[in-house]
């Protein structure tokens, strides 16, 4: 008996070709963790993850398909391929005895949305109050979208952003992006 997962935004997608290409799409699920650990133990945790956990809030580290963004003084949001999930959970379970921490699986809590194109930052600027354009590529943070939905925003490259949002808020974020994408399409 196989149970099939159901993605909240499955089948959705926005693709504009004018004035500049812009695509907004739900991204494939990954294993996602909220990691809380004493920042002094960052090295031990990095060893388990196979990725150097960044030390400054807002910094993002990439290693292959693994990503970690530092959200708070002792908080990291980590995404890894689903295939790596069990190994990472086992590794942290083994670490717990020497270094207590909290690793919580939040894979199904979040939905990831990718926004790519020259006007990606402009799209976000309708929903986000800080200066999105001033975000360095390779940085990320938690913030609030449209004053209503808390998100984690990553800027992977100058023209590429990723929003991670709780699934019950994802429809709102999606509808909002649809409306703003129309403004971009009309070039106004």
């Amino acid at each position: 008996m196989t149970m099939h997962p159901h993605h909240p935004l499955s089948g959705e997608g926005i693709a504009l070709h004018k004035p500049f290409p812009l695509t907004i799409r739900p991204l494939a699920d990954k294993a996602r963790f909220s990691l809380r650990i004493d920042p002094d133990q960052r090295i031990a945790a990095s060893a388990v993850l196979g990725l150097n956990l960044p030390g400054n809030i807002g910094d993002v580290a990439y290693a292959g398909e693994k990503t970690a963004v530092c959200l708070g003084p002792d908080e990291w949001y980590v995404t890894v391929p689903v295939a790596d999930q069990a190994e990472i959970e086992a590794g942290f379970a083994a670490l717990y005895a020497q270094q207590p921490h909290s690793l919580v699986d939040v894979s199904h809590r979040e939905v990831s949305i990718g926004i790519e194109g020259r006007d990606a930052a402009l799209v976000l600027q309708s929903a986000i109050a800080f200066d999105v354009d001033a975000m360095a590529p390779g940085s990320g943070c938690r913030t609030i979208f449209d004053g209503k939905a808390q998100i984690i925003l990553l800027r992977d490259a100058k023209d590429r952003f990723q929003i991670d949002v709780w699934h019950s808020f994802s429809e709102h974020v999606w509808h909002f992006l649809q409306v703003v994408a129309r403004e971009i399409e009309l070039d106004i």
Binding site: A129, F130, C141, T143, I144, G147
Partner: peptide
């Protein structure tokens, strides 16, 4: 909307985040 300096993030962020 005010800007508030978060001493942990060491950054000024918009009031809606607080």
């Amino acid at each position: 909307m005010l800007l508030i300096h978060c001493p942990y993030c060491n950054a000024e962020r918009p009031e809606v985040e607080f």
